[in-house]
Each structure stands twice: as structure tokens, then as C-alpha cells.
Amino acid sequence: MPSFQTRLKITGLKPGNPPEAVMAAAVEALETRHHVEANQLELAGGVPQLNLRFLVEATEYHGENQQARESAAMMRDAVERVALTGSLMVLRRNRGRWAPV
């Protein structure tokens, strides 16, 4: 199964939401469609960034990439209910390296 990763910048919390709600929203959204292998919060240039790694059912290359992009957008929508977001990247694992989709 192809492995993908999303990287979503978080620029702030919406009022009344604890910091833990951000990752919980992201994981919950992705888990509705895919197996989430790992998740972590990093600082990228001083800005918090969610990194989630997930598997997409193997079909054909472009379809898998499209599924990953759609799922990442759905995840971002879920996160935006509790936080303000910045840039979103979707990467695919290919021959041991992460490459943008």
C-alpha cells in the first residue's frame, strides 16, 4: 500500500479549543478513509506543523495521489473547525524518499 504524508501548518487556535483538539481533529478525519500510521507535531521555522503519515489502498498511481490529496483537504477542513491553518503539503513515499504529490 502506498504511503503518504501530510504537513499542515497551524497558525493559531480558535477560541475555546485546547491544543490537543488540533491533532485529534486531524487524525479522526484521516482515519475515516485511511489507516494512519503515525502523527506528530513539529516546529517548522517556528510555526507548529502537523505531520501525519497514512496508507492509501493500492489502485493506480494517479488515483492514489488524487485520493491522498482529497483526504488531506478533508483533514484540513476538520482541523479548521478548531484552529487556523497555513500551508498544506501532500507527499508520497517513493524509493525511500518523500516527494510532493
Rank of each mutant, 00 (worst) to 15 (best):
P18N: 11
P18C: 05
P18W: 04
P19R: 13
E20M: 06
E20N: 15
E20V: 15
E20A: 14
A21H: 09
A21G: 14
V22T: 07
V22L: 02
V22Q: 05
V22W: 05
M23T: 07
M23D: 11
M23P: 07
A24C: 03
A25W: 00
A25Q: 04
A25C: 05
A26K: 12
A26Q: 09
A26W: 08
V27T: 12
E28V: 01
E28M: 08
A29R: 09
A29L: 05
L30N: 00
L30I: 00
E31Q: 11
E31G: 07
E31R: 15
E31V: 10
E31F: 01
T32N: 00
T32H: 02
T32A: 06
R33W: 13
R33A: 07
R33Y: 06
H34N: 03
H34C: 10
H34V: 08
H34G: 02
H34R: 05
H34K: 01
V36H: 01
V36F: 06
E37W: 01
E37M: 04
E37K: 11
A38Y: 02
A38M: 07
A38L: 08
A38D: 12
N39T: 09
N39Q: 08
N39V: 12
Q40G: 12
Q40A: 06
L41C: 02
L41S: 02
L41T: 07
E42L: 14
E42P: 01
E42W: 09
L43D: 03
L43F: 10
L43K: 07
L43R: 11
L43A: 04
G45M: 01
G45A: 09
G45F: 04
G46F: 04
G46K: 00
G46C: 09
G46V: 05
V47C: 06
P48C: 01
P48A: 04
P48K: 02
P48Q: 02
Q49L: 13
Q49C: 13
Q49A: 11
Q49K: 08
Q49V: 14
L50E: 00
N51S: 09
N51K: 10
N51C: 10
N51M: 05
L52V: 09
R53N: 05
R53K: 13
R53I: 15
R53L: 15
F54M: 07
F54T: 00
L55S: 10
L55G: 11
L55R: 13
V56A: 15
V56M: 15
V56H: 13
V56T: 14
E57Y: 14
E57T: 15
E57F: 11
E57L: 12
E57C: 04
